[in-house]
């Protein structure tokens, strides 16, 4: 094949056509890319806009963690109105998964005024996240009152409990973070106490009665299946439990309540015991004296039993600290105040 023949052949024509088409396409796309490219900044602004509902200017805030149940991933302060936009990942979801949410925290006058919006960004292992409706998420805004800590019981309509917990944790984490940023950390008077592993210290309060006894209004944390219990325990001056009432049973169903230790439910197991007595039960852990109902504490309601047990241990172990405090600080006025504030 001579050179002349080659230039006249179909092969040459094909090559030329393909090259031309490619060149034209490439040039066209290059120009268009230059014209239409979306910059990272624009993309970010768009993402923020989508969450916020209107275009706003933001500044980045350094991230820090104030809550064990949530990780703050990103935080922005909205320049226009001073609100905060937090990306927070809540732990403790279904199957140990997490849920990442964008949360708009309404701030005015240097204090948190509410939650404007919660948007679910992503999740890990929460197969039923679609069942969390907007209605359920709106409850975060509706239910906000000062100092509230969201628990999964507050949020109805989201069927999957674990996912709900993770979302609540994310929102609580964001609230804690913003509060800390603004310097409004409510001092946690019980933080240094013993046996607080299962106690929701920020929700718990106490009052000192006239006869020197102390009544605790304890709110426990939820533990996997059972959600938090509310227990009122009165400790007299000798550190002995005189009154014990479960005001709110966190157990999920009657089946579980029925399997809880009867003495824990009505308090007969604790009443008349001081810390040493309760510690003995705790140390024995699994095998409680089965004199009461024959049910051992190792039943399916173990978690519920443990929550109540810890509440009792918390009350009996720590009551003397409060008494000392009260002596030093004019008769418990401050703790009372603290208590109401926390409620």
């Amino acid at each position: 094949m001579t050179v002349k023949q080659f230039f006249k052949s179909t092969a040459f024509k094909c090559i030329i056509t393909l090259t031309c088409v490619l060149l034209v396409s490439g040039i066209f796309l290059t120009i268009m890319n230059g014209l239409l490219a979306v910059s990272d900044a624009e993309r970010f602004e768009r993402a923020i806009n989508k969450i916020y509902g209107k275009s706003v200017k933001t500044e980045t805030v350094a991230v820090a963690n104030y809550n064990d149940n949530a990780t703050i991933d990103e935080a922005y302060r909205v320049k226009d109105d001073g609100n905060y936009l937090i990306k927070s990942t809540g732990k403790g979801g279904y199957d140990n998964g997490t849920v990442t949410c964008w949360i708009v925290v309404n701030v005015s006058g240097g204090a948190v005024k509410g939650i404007d919006k919660v948007v679910i960004e992503s999740n890990k292992g929460q197969s039923y996240i679609d069942r969390v409706s907007d209605k359920a998420l709106n409850q975060f805004t509706e239910l906000y009152t000062d100092g509230i800590i969201y628990t999964q019981d507050l949020i109805t309509n989201a069927t999957v409990k674990g996912t709900k917990t993770a979302i609540c944790n994310a929102v609580n984490g964001a609230l804690d973070f913003v509060n800390a940023l603004l310097g409004n950390v409510t001092e946690d008077i019980y933080a240094e106490f013993d046996f607080v592993e299962y106690i929701e210290t920020k929700l718990t309060s106490h009052e000192v009665n006239e006869d020197g006894s102390i009544t605790f209004h304890i709110v426990t944390k939820g533990l996997k299946e059972p959600s938090g219990f509310k227990v009122d325990i009165t400790i007299n001056a000798d550190g002995v439990v005189t009154d014990y009432t479960v005001t709110e049973n966190g157990s999920t169903s009657n089946t579980y309540v029925g399997q809880m230790h009867a003495g824990i439910l009505d308090g007969t197991l604790f009443e008349g015991k001081d810390f040493a007595g309760i510690e003995a039960i705790l140390d024995n852990g699994i095998s409680l004296p089965s004199d009461n109902s024959g049910t051992e504490i190792s039943t399916g309601a173990t978690h519920s039993n443990y929550l109540c047990l810890y509440a009792a241990a918390f009350a009996t172990k720590n009551y003397d600290k409060l008494i000392v405090d009260d002596g030093g600080n004019e008769g418990g006025g401050e703790t009372d105040e603290g208590g109401t504030e926390n409620e």
């Binding site: 279904y94 199957d95 999964q152 999957v160 409990k161 709900k164 299946e225 089946t255 399997q259 399916g300």
Partner: peptide, 25 residues
Amino acid sequence: RFESGIFTDATNLAWLFPSEGNPTT
């Protein structure tokens, strides 16, 4: 599965699949 709270009126069949946190009743 004990951990997942999606079940209503739960009974304790979780012990069929023993793992940490599952009830043993």
